[in-house]
Design a protein around this nucleic acid. Sequence first.
DNA 1: CATAAACCTTCCCCTCGTGGCAACCTCAAG
DNA 2: CTTGAGGTTGCCACGAGGGGAAGGTTTATG
Lengths: 129, 129
Amino acid sequence: MNIGEVSKRADISSKMVRRYEEQGIIPKASRSDAGYRQYSENDVHILKFVKRSRELGFSMKDIKQLVGLWRNKGRSSSQVKNIATKHIDELEKKLKETQEMLKTLNHLVKNCQGDNRPDCPILEELSCH
Amino acid sequence: MNIGEVSKRADISSKMVRRYEEQGIIPKASRSDAGYRQYSENDVHILKFVKRSRELGFSMKDIKQLVGLWRNKGRSSSQVKNIATKHIDELEKKLKETQEMLKTLNHLVKNCQGDNRPDCPILEELSCH
DNA sequence: CATAAACCTTCCCCTCGTGGCAACCTCAAG
DNA sequence: CTTGAGGTTGCCACGAGGGGAAGGTTTATG
């Protein structure tokens, strides 16, 4: 299987498949006589794992570890849980920050007429704080 | 006022003050004989405006427009409101995405023992989907 | 058989907001 | 006069990609 095929199957751009290989997240692909990367079903499986992990917001650093643990049958589930828990903490922090921003922004927008006049409480707030 | 002073007053690194100037977000500072950038109270004010806008998550592109509108007395508040509303929409989208991730992650972590055994529903989910 | 389209390779630059470092210049105090 | 603090420019890095050039390969078609 060439990179285009594996890319379609895992729904990851060829570009990123090459990059993941560089970063050691997926094993180095063997090459055809012409130097084309060759992939197996197993590679598709790994790439889907990576994709799903990205969808859950894990960083590439985390994913590298997760793939390692996934392939290591002697892992302990606590290692995986630690990575996930740390990630949850970070996401919750971001969530709170975003909620704070939204709270302020919604309040500002509600008080802005949005007409042709220049008076604008949004600019007021941004300038005075 | 030199860049270090204005940087302290607005709580923005000197680096970023120079960068904002490059990007045309703040006016080009005049220079002393030695080539040092010179700032006024007004510049501090603009930089604080930028800082506050960043804290509300606006992009630099948005901020450039906001600063322009702020300084333009002939603006209409609808222009400002449009920028803010678009930003709110984007933040809400991100918020939902983060909440979705957290929902899944919390569910997974709850079902993971986190012990010395290799069995791990987190890896299961990541690999099978 | 030749040619064109589709595919692969590596390499470099762009994003966005920021930090760090190097090399060099200037200013104020001891 | 020297020293240290602070200024100047310029380049490189992050993370997670995207875009595209320049060139080699494969495959289908006239």
